[in-house]
């Protein structure tokens, strides 16, 4: 009897928990959409500047999100450019070459790196800057490049782990096929193992891109500022969407700016959700596209 009661209340509680979580999530997103939905439009991005002029860099955009969007895109591109080759190569080493105690040691290191809070990664980027500043040139300060390096470090363990698990989960029969036909280890990796895990690795890369796009703590320590316009080079400071949102939350001067903040939040959600959905779709589809032809 008591048992039935426990079981029943557990069912009730579980449903309530699921409902509460769904409601909380939908309320937050709905609130954002309701507040910022009206601000969405060309105006939000380019302000009063003509879009074409802005895109061709003929005119600066002062009252739109254009510099922040470009900053975020540059951040993503830069950090992934650094992280992808390093992460995949290290992942291949972990899965295909590394054995025994060395492997245990390395995976522990990468686990720690994966668990390190992003603000610590930002702090490391900042200390690197201070170090360079003191040792080499007083010209060096926080910049787009430092942010890209730090963000690359942030997603590196993730890429390593994705590549490693993808390679390790390949069917042993497929793994043996190419060597039995006279393939070298490298040939096997390049021609069979990597193509076979392309969808997992691909979706891992996309998810890592999402982390680069959303992270605020790293960039606020390494060079993101509220108003910098478009970055002139990788050595200058820059704007970025997440930092803009943070900045607006405490420094907004009027309802217009606040609305732009909500608009930025919606854009960032769209970007991250889009990346996430692409990654999920990729897990199912990419293999079909690349290999069935």
């Amino acid at each position: 009897m008591i048992r039935r009661l426990i079981e029943g209340s557990l069912i009730l509680f579980s449903w309530a928990a699921g409902l509460l979580l769904t409601l909380a999530f939908l309320t937050l997103v709905g609130f954002l959409l309701q507040k910022g939905g009206t601000s969405l439009g060309v105006n939000l991005i380019f302000g009063d500047t003509a879009p074409l002029d802005a895109l061709l860099l003929r005119q600066q955009v002062f009252d739109g999100l254009f510099p922040a969007i470009i900053g975020t895109l540059l951040l993503i591109a830069g950090s992934m450019l650094i992280a992808i080759p390093l992460g995949i190569a290290a992942g291949i080493y972990m899965a295909e070459y590394c054995r025994g105690r060395v492997k245990t040691f390395f995976s522990l290191l990468f686990d720690i790196l994966a668990g390190v809070p992003s603000i610590i990664v930002g702090l490391a980027g900042l200390s690197l800057t201070i170090f360079l500043h003191r040792s080499f040139s007083a010209q060096i300060s926080t910049s787009l490049l430092i942010s890209c390096l730090s963000l690359a470090l942030l997603v590196l363990p993730y890429l390593i782990r994705t590549t490693q698990t993808a390679l390790e989960s390949i069917d042993p029969l497929i793994r043996m096929t190419a060597p039995a036909l006279g393939a070298s280890r490298l040939q096997n990796i390049i021609r069979v193992l990597l193509p076979n895990s392309i969808s997992e690795i691909g979706s891992g890369i996309i998810l890592a891109t999402g982390r680069c796009a959303e992270d605020t703590a790293v960039i606020m320590l390494t060079g993101a500022v509220a108003s910098a316009g478009l970055p002139r080079s990788i050595f200058s400071q820059y704007e970025a969407l997440p930092f803009y949102i943070y900045y607006i939350s405490s420094q907004y001067s009027g309802p217009d700016e606040l609305r732009r903040g909500f608009g930025a939040a919606i854009l960032l959600i769209l970007l991250c959700a889009g990346l996430l959905l692409t990654a999920l779709w990729m897990q199912r589809r990419l293999k079909t596209i690349l290999l069935y032809r």
Partner: peptide, 10 residues
């Protein structure tokens, strides 16, 4: 092999 093992290609 015991199981046919065509690679995922044409």
């Amino acid at each position: 092999f015991q199981q046919p093992n065509p690679l995922p290609m044409s």
